[in-house]
């Protein structure tokens, strides 16, 4: 374990925690621009989180310990996920601990805790949100796994860091299979992060919401952690997408400290692009009815499996 890899690891975790709300702010700003609204500051999510941390927490009378520890569990899972994803460098000491399949499991753990906590208090909306979240989740997960399998088949490893290193180090090659899986991954990203075709992150209209319905009973520091974790989740997903589909510019071992210096602004540029793209998708598409969401996820699964088949047939 060289000092360089240790510092890459530390930098990645800290950057993910600090930059995640900024990314959400950027997406919101882009959306506001596209919709001809005057945009809130990109720092708005930080202000929201800071405000919530200064308030006193209110808990439901019958809330169990699970309800109280869930924000910490979810936040912890997201930070751990951020540590595994090679957003800046591929030599991360922690990647030995978990490959990409374990990463999917980690995200599923967070989802499970959130759903259980939402059901814990026993309000109708919480249960409703939890059920919907599980419905979307269990359909999105196989699609996500398929996406990862295609990339894993191409680079002969399931470690996300090794996949990113292999893909970034190649000479120019067209991968139709990766194009298919990129579409699938985009759909999964939208569904898992409660973005517009599946859920509207800005609404508090109870009948249509999924993610927000689970957070209704949370207040103050718990709510802040949950919102921060949601921002981190979005950030993580975008970073997974970057690692799988546009890994160029990530620091590999041979490049040394210079690679790390270059990779930070490159990552920033990619995130700017991804945020603008996300805002564009959300602006041009309408929210689907909840019961149409399985269709969207079936499409995502279809794309991912098509990618797999095309890879097996064409070897590319």
């Amino acid at each position: 374990m060289s000092p360089l890899s240790l510092s890459t690891q530390g930098l990645e975790i800290i950057a993910a925690i600090l930059a995640a709300p900024l990314f959400v702010g950027w997406v919101n700003q882009c959306r506001a621009w596209l919709q001809n609204r005057s945009a809130p500051s990109v720092l708005q999510p930080y202000r929201g989180i800071r405000k919530l941390f200064h308030k006193d927490a209110v808990l439901a009378e019958r809330a169990s310990a699970l309800f109280r520890i869930t924000p910490y569990m979810v936040f912890g899972a997201m930070v751990l996920a951020a540590a595994i994803i090679p957003s800046m460098g591929t030599r991360l000491p922690l990647t030995i601990a978990a490959d990409s399949i374990a990463l999917v499991g980690l995200l599923a753990t967070a989802r499970m805790f959130m759903s259980l906590a939402a059901m814990d208090v026993g309000t109708a909306f919480g249960t409703l949100g939890a059920r919907r979240e599980m419905m979307v989740g269990f359909l999105a997960e196989p699609a996500l796994l398929m996406v990862i399998f295609v990339a894993a088949l191409i680079s002969q490893t399931t470690s996300l860091a090794a996949i990113a290193e292999h893909l970034s180090g190649q000479t120019l090659a067209l991968y139709p299979s990766l194009a298919f899986t990129a579409v699938a991954f985009t759909l999964v990203l939208l569904a898992e992060n409660a973005r517009i075709p599946v859920d509207n992150p800005a609404t508090h209209l109870e009948l249509t919401m999924i993610h927000e319905a689970m957070l209704l009973e949370y207040s103050a520091r718990h709510l802040a952690l949950m919102e921060w974790a949601a921002a981190l989740k979005l950030f993580n997903y975008v970073c997974i997408g970057i690692a799988l589909f546009v890994p160029w510019g990530v620091a590999t071992e041979s490049q040394g400290p210079v690679g790390l210096l270059i990779s930070v602004p490159v990552l920033g540029l990619k995130l700017l692009g991804a945020g603008a793209g996300l805002a564009l998708i959300e602006t041009v598409s309408a929210k689907l009815r909840v019961f149409r969401a399985p269709e969207l996820m079936a499409t995502a699964f279809l794309f991912a499996v098509l990618g797999l088949l095309v890879h097996l047939l064409l070897g590319a």
Binding site: I154, L172, A173, L174, P176, L306, V310, L314, G315, A316
Partner: peptide
């Protein structure tokens, strides 16, 4: 992976697009 010339890669990509 066997190396495939770029033109054929493009043909393959077209085929994937057809599908």
């Amino acid at each position: 992976m066997v190396h495939i010339p770029l033109l054929l890669q493009l043909v393959n990509a077209c085929a994937a697009g057809l599908l």
